[in-house]
Design a protein around this nucleic acid. Structure first.
Length: 579
DNA sequence: GCCGTTTTCGGCCCGACTGTTTTCAGTCG
């Protein structure tokens, strides 16, 4: 029972309870618990063993007991009972836009609907019309909603979503009367994957903008349109919301749409305690006076808080820290000084060593390692040990050419083979300046097997960094089923480092494991895994993961100057220290 | 079901938009 599986159980409970008609605050409690379990650094199993389940925010006696039952028996009687009371197929109905728990219950109790396909049938045969509050338009919305659900693609990777949002921002900023426009929502918080695209705009007369949006040739259909908010579907089943307020209210709007929901709820509760009411329009005082904010910083200030970087807005303690004025100064792209996981045309990269090194220099880096694939990974044209020696000659030539402005290292991304052995012998590994060890194949091995395989690489005295540890591919491929309690403890004991692989389709380690690693004293790098010069720009996505993990620059070894980093690399692995 | 610099009981964010309604309920973010 992983944390994610446990969180899914509680989300399922919340869905079923809502349809059943339980009081909303119970279901909210289960959802809150699920959310907090998802973002836990440690495994529930380990937390349970330490007897600390109730220290998880949102977990009280009742939910702690259910977690314990799930961990020890792999099932939950409470859920099984619930599933006999409410047809589980109704959960799918909640995915249909404009269908929530009340309508799902209505369709179930009044029309005998127990699944999505039965709902579609019921609507088409006219069974839904005539139910309380259901008219012709409701009927149409359900049909359109089910079709949209079928069209709807998976979540978007960050770079894709940014590209789409930037094109729309350019368009919206060019509209008459638009003074400011920004991407908000999960995109502004740099979440790993993006569901909907949210755009906020400061505009005096929003009617014209909303009309122009509805008429835009790339808008497939308008899902809803009002004075302050429009929702449209873009090609590929992507949904976009556009929110507007007059310029003097832009600060509260940007704050609200940036979210997260949990952060906003916590912020509004804090406002309440201060006798204020916070909305996307303004802050209202007890005597009904509206305070307007053109800038977001001033909204936080008005609540007695420091401005919270969007990456931290998940209700993970940031509000309390902002109130105490001790928010961390988070790492930024410009802090990076080293890149140690990249590929040249000596393996499957596009560019030469010189081109890559110049690209690194142009981005302000001072240490740069080429770490081409090892020989065993056939598809990547990996290097045999002899090839490494040849490549080293070229590295030395380029080093001479570029002088002292950048320090070049000869490295490898060595394959961890299916049997757990490494693709080079120890002599070759010892000869390299830096070794990144990665899993690429047989990622579906059973937990014990793949964990042992990774542990073997972690323990090798010549392996400096574990590359993209989980092997996940965003947005859809899950990572390997690793026992993270073991992996992290072994990493700590061995002195190996982890990377945040900055490729937007990896972002691996994820933020929760990054945070736990740093708390345990495991070194962290941010690496692009670039196979071409322009991919060095992906570093910004790696930085976003570090920021969401609350990391300061000094906690990431990629910010270290060459001398310090190379001294660290030359120190025997077991003796390495972080300072 | 959780939680407490007003509370261990009585609260639990707030507004926009829609449809079916003559004042509101449901959904969404």
């Amino acid at each position: 029972m992983t944390n994610e599986q446990c969180a899914q159980v509680f989300d399922r409970i919340a869905d079923l309870m809502e349809i059943k008609g339980e009081i909303i605050y119970k279901t909210l409690a289960y959802r809150k618990a699920a959310e907090n379990i998802r973002s836990l650094a440690g495994s529930l199993k380990a937390i349970h063993q330490q007897g600390k389940l109730m220290e998880i925010p949102g977990v009280g006696k009742a939910i702690a007991e259910k977690i314990e039952e799930l961990i020890t028996t792999e099932k939950l009687v409470f859920l099984e009972q619930l599933e006999t009371e409410v047809p589980v197929g109704l959960i799918d109905l909640l995915q249909v836009p404009d269908v929530g728990p009340r309508k799902a219950a209505l369709f179930w109790k009044q029309a005998g609907v127990t699944s999505l396909s039965e709902l579609e049938e019921a609507v088409k045969s006219g069974q839904i019309r005539g139910l309380v509050g259901m008219g012709e338009k409701s009927e149409q919305r359900i049909i359109v909603g089910i079709e949209a659900l079928k069209r709807r693609g998976h979540r978007l990777n960050l770079d894709t979503a940014q590209g789409i949002a930037n094109r729309w921002l350019k368009w919206i900023r060019s509209q008459p009367g638009v003074e400011r426009a920004e991407a908000a929502g999960s995109l502004r918080r740099w979440k790993t994957t993006i569901g909907d695209i949210d755009i906020v705009a400061a505009v005096k007369d929003s009617g014209a903008v909303m009309a122009a949006l509805a008429a835009h040739p790339d808008v497939q259909r308008v899902l809803g349109s009002g004075e302050n908010k429009s929702s449209v579907e873009l090609p590929g089943g992507i949904n976009m919301q556009v929110w507007t307020q007059p310029p003097e209210r832009f600060g509260t709007l940007l704050q609200f749409v940036t979210g997260s929901k949990d952060h906003n709820v916590a912020l509004r509760e804090l406002a309440q305690k201060k006798g204020l009411s916070l909305s996307e329009r303004c802050i209202t005082t007890t005597d009904g006076k509206e305070l307007l904010f053109a800038d977001e910083e001033l909204v936080y200030q008005a609540l007695g808080l420091d401005w919270v970087p969007p990456e931290l807005r998940e209700d993970h303690g940031e509000i309390k820290v902002a109130a105490s004025h001790v928010l961390p100064v988070l790492i930024q792209l410009s802090d990076l000084r080293a890149e140690v996981h990249t590929h040249s045309n000596w393996s499957d990269g596009i560019n030469t060593i010189e081109e890559m090194a110049r690209g690194a220099m142009a981005r302000g880096l001072m240490t740069y390692a080429i770490s081409d694939h090892s020989g065993g990974l056939g598809i990547a044209g990996g290097l045999k040990p002899e090839g490494l020696k040849e490549r080293q000659k070229e590295i030395e030539v380029v080093q001479k050419l570029l002088g002292g402005a950048i320090t070049l290292l000869g490295g490898s991304e060595v394959e961890i083979k299916a049997d757990g052995s490494l693709d080079y012998d120890d002599e070759t590994l010892a000869w390299l300046d830096i070794v990144v060890a990665s899993l690429h194949t047989s990622l579906r091995q059973p937990r014990e097997v793949i964990t042992a395989r990774l542990v073997n690489a972690i323990r090798n005295p010549h392996v400096d960094i574990i590359g993209h540890a989980s092997g996940r591919l965003l947005p859809n491929r899950e990572g390997a089923d690793l026992d993270w309690d073991i992996v992290l403890q072994e990493a700590k004991d061995s002195g190996v480092a982890f990377e945040i692989n900055a490729s937007p389709s990896r972002l691996d380690l994820d933020e929760t494991h990054v945070r736990q690693s740093v708390e345990m004293g495991i070194p962290i790098f941010i690496n692009t895994d670039a196979h071409a010069v322009d991919q060095l720009d992906n570093a910004v996505y790696g930085v976003s993961v570090a920021r969401r993990a609350w990391l300061k620059p000094e906690q990431v070894l990629s910010t270290w100057e060459p001398e310090k980093l190379i001294t660290w690399l030359r120190t025997p692995k077991s003796e390495r220290r972080l300072l």
